[in-house]
Each structure stands twice: as C-alpha cells, then as structure tokens.
Computed example of a mutant assay.
Amino acid sequence: MIAAYCSNCKTVELGDISQASTLPDDVMWIDMIEPTREEELYLEKALGIEVPTRDDMKDIEPSARLYVENDAVFMTASLVWKAETDAPTLTDVAFILVGKRLITIRYALPKSFALFIAALHRVPAQCRNGAALLSKLFETIIDRTAEILEISVARIDILSMHVFGDRARKVRRPSNYLEEKLRDIAGHHRLVSKVRDSLASMSRLMTFFYNVPAVQQDRDTKELCKTVSRDIQSLNEHASFIAGNITFLLDASLGLINIEQNSIIKIFSIASVVFLPPTLVASIYGMNFEFMPELHFAHGYPISLGLMVMSAIIPFFFFRWKGWL
C-alpha cells in the first residue's frame, strides 16, 4: 500500500496517482507499507531511484544502511514494534530523501508513524519538505521511544514491589511465585534490549543525516537534529540505568529463591538432628545381646520412651534459643 501526503497534508490514494508516470508536484511524503513489487516498480519509475527491498533493509552493514546514490539519500533504522505486548521486536524502516520529497518504506506499523500522521497538520507550512519532515518524524520516533522507557520503568517499579513488598508484609505466596516473576523480568529485559538496539541504530542514522546538505542548509532542521541527537544520548543513558535496575532485580529474585530453598533444607537438617538422639536410644535398646540388664527392668519401656522424648525436646529448644528455627 502507498499513502501519499501533499503539502496541504491531504492524503492521495494510490488509485489517484497510479495512472501517471510522474507524481504531482505537491506530494511531499510517500509512505509505503508492505509494498508489492508492482508498487516498488511504479515508484522507481516515478522518482528515478532504486527502492531497497526488504532483504536490503535487513543488512546490518553501515554502507548498506546509510548511503547516497544519484543525489538520493538512503537511510535505514531499526524501530521498536509491539512494545505493549509480551513479544516486542525490531522492525527495519527505510527513509529516502529525493529532492524535496520524503519516502518511507516499512513492513510493520510502529506507533510513532501513527502519531506523526495524526499531528501532520500541525507542521508549519514552511517546514513541509522532505528534510524538515524527516527531522520531525525522527523527533516523534524518539519521543515514542522515551514513552516506551517510561512505561517500562513504571512496570518494573510495580514488579519490584511484588518481589520485595509482599515479602515485607509477610504475605503467603505460592511456591512458584518468584519463578513467575523471573519470566516477567526476562520480558522487561527483552524490551529494554530492543530499545537500546533501536537507539544505537538511530544514533548512527542521525550522525549521517546531520551531514546531509539539505539539513545543513536549513537552520531550523539543523537545530532540531541536534536536539534529537542529544535526546538519543540521554535516552541511551536512561536505558542503561533501567538495564542495571533489571539486573539488580534479577539477582535479587534469584537470591530470594535461594533463601527460600535454603530455609527448606535447613528445616530438614534440623529435623534430622532433632530425631538423631531418639534414634540412638532406640538403636541401643533394639540390640539383642543376651546380657542386657534393662531387658528385665519392669519400667524399662516407659523410661526408654521418656529418654527418646527428652533427647528430642532438648535439641529443639536449644535450636530455638540459638535462633536457628
């Protein structure tokens, strides 16, 4: 699908432009969403460029992601997609500057694009050209990334309260409670890792984009690029801080699991020590030697039972006095 946006922010559908060999002069942004080969060929013919394919966009080499060809600037970045789900992922998006037009090619629906399209009418008329639009689109992408990190921080804070807070209130929890929280921690770690990968991709792209002549010639666009680059650096530091908190939460959860397991093992260890003296008494009087004076003692059985009980009670209260129970 191809969505074309004119300088007056109105949308031109593919059916309105597919009959012409050239695009209308007032088309400033062409957004290609999962384009077919026919749509790619049409755009290549209309703009005189070679549109990168989906496989080309997956290439991780900088020379394949950031380059200039026939006066057209080609850039590819990895953006976070499905951040609100349990399976966040990265999607590659291509940005192409051809003259005063912006072309975007994507095979997913990142929320940042929907936010930018919704606010497109608020872009000043003098900024409705390819480079200026792209800088504002990058600003929206970084703002969306900041929002994802804020949501992640809030969820991690709630998760931390679940791991530590319930324990402080002595709330009885299921035996596999912390194991379930480990899965939640892994999900947060995956999201933050994807965000950091996306920020690294955007940082390389902004360095390249800043040196594009169309940016250097527009003071406002140049200043906006500087601001976006500073925001990327700040978000990188914030993402690193969040990753450190996640690592701490992971280590703490594993430590609490070990403490619970050690407590169970300690109970069995103390129980074996408590019942060891009664076992010793029973073993002594369970022997079948011919000459054992206590065998003919009238009160030998109750006395041996009393010895067994006392030998169990004394260690028990000793452990209580030491605070081991």
Score class of each variant (00 low, 15 high):
R172Q: 13
R173T: 15
S175D: 11
S175L: 11
L182V: 15
R183D: 14
R183T: 15
D184R: 14
A186R: 07
G187S: 12
G187K: 13
H189L: 06
S193H: 05
V195M: 04
R196I: 00
R196K: 03
D197Y: 12
S198C: 06
L199V: 07
L199F: 05
L199Y: 08
L205R: 10
M206R: 05
M206E: 09
T207W: 01
T207R: 15
F209H: 04
F209S: 05
Y210P: 00
N211M: 03
V212G: 06
V215E: 01
V215W: 00
Q216R: 11
D220G: 00
D220K: 06
D220H: 00
T221P: 00
T221V: 02
K222T: 00
L224G: 03
T227E: 13
S229K: 10
S229H: 12
R230L: 14
D231V: 09
D231T: 11
I232L: 15
I232H: 08
S234L: 11
E237L: 10
E237C: 03
H238N: 08
A239I: 00
S240I: 03
A243S: 11
A243L: 01
A243D: 08
G244I: 01
I246K: 03
T247K: 13
T247A: 15
F248M: 07
F248L: 10
L250K: 14
D251I: 06
D251P: 05
A252R: 13
L254E: 12
L256F: 15
I257L: 07
I259F: 13
I259L: 15
I259Y: 14
E260G: 11
E260S: 12
Q261E: 02
S263N: 15
I265A: 01
K266H: 09
K266R: 14
F268A: 02
F268P: 02
I270N: 00
A271H: 00
A271Q: 02
A271Y: 01
V274Q: 01
V274N: 01
L276C: 10
L276D: 05
P278W: 04
P278M: 03
P278R: 06
P278I: 02
L280N: 07
A282H: 10
